[in-house]
């Protein structure tokens, strides 16, 4: 089986001289298809940097990243863009849905760019129902609550049917009931649809759904026990 994400000896250093900050230290990480990985850590621990490197948005100072056996280092900007469009679904804490597109149009935009292998209408409807936003399809983001926008952003990231899902604090704007539902959704995506799901968060309520959990502190990633 191909490893979905493999990060080896990743170091990330910002700045130079006295302004130098070592954000990630020799990070090694693997995520297999069909697993949900949880990266827990406080603010400023390097979680987001980890995620941007895993998603090919940032080149690490040293180390290598492979996604579905494709090494980021050997990929052009366009190839990385294509990889993100086809294989990686980003669920971001700052969901920033385009304010002038209805929920339906947010998906249409994906159709305009990625013509094939997106979720079918039926699959999308099921996903929207699972997220409890199926009746909001004709609404604009400004007509939705923060939690509803968050769920639309999750659906939007899942719509291209990526093999890898990278989520940055996906439950930040959700109440406990919704956290449960979203956690289950990610768990189902991993276990039933064989996706590699990586969630960086400080929301410990998601532990119940994780297959492996890591803690990140001062840029050092260590495996942690899922202690429920």
């Amino acid at each position: 089986m191909t490893t979905a994400i493999e990060m080896s000896d990743i170091n990330q250093i910002y700045g130079k001289g006295i302004a130098e900050v070592h954000v990630l230290h020799d990070v090694n990480f693997k995520a297999e298809p069909g697993t949900l990985s949880l990266i827990i850590g406080p603010s400023g621990s390097g979680k987001s940097t980890f995620l941007t490197i895993a998603g090919g948005l940032r080149t690490p100072t040293s180390g290598s990243v492979k996604v579905n056996n494709q090494n980021y280092h050997d990929s052009s900007r366009k190839e990385l863009e294509k990889l993100r469009l086809n294989d990686i679904g980003f669920v971001l804490q700052n969901y920033h849905l385009l304010p002038f597109l209805t929920v339906r149009d947010q998906f249409k935009l994906v159709d305009k760019v990625k013509k094939n292998n997106n979720l079918s209408t039926e699959e999308l409807n099921t996903l929207l129902k699972q997220l409890g936003i199926d009746d909001l399809i004709n609404k604009y983001p400004t007509e939705l609550s923060g939690g509803q926008q968050q769920r639309v952003a999750i659906a939007r990231a899942l719509y291209p049917d990526p093999s890898i899902i990278l989520a940055d604090e996906p439950t930040a704007a959700l109440d406990s009931a919704r956290v449960e539902e979203v956690g289950k959704l990610f768990s189902d995506l991993a276990h039933e649809r064989n996706k590699a799901v990586v969630i960086v968060t400080h929301d410990l309520r998601l532990r119940a759904f994780a297959d492996q959990m890591f803690e990140i502190n001062d840029g050092i990633l260590t495996k942690a026990a899922i202690d429920l």
Binding site: F90, H96, L97, L98, R156
Partner: peptide
């Protein structure tokens, strides 16, 4: 721009 940044992260060329 923040909206566009999200789209770029999601691979929209």
């Amino acid at each position: 721009l923040p909206n566009y940044a999200v789209l770029r992260a999601q691979g929209i060329p």
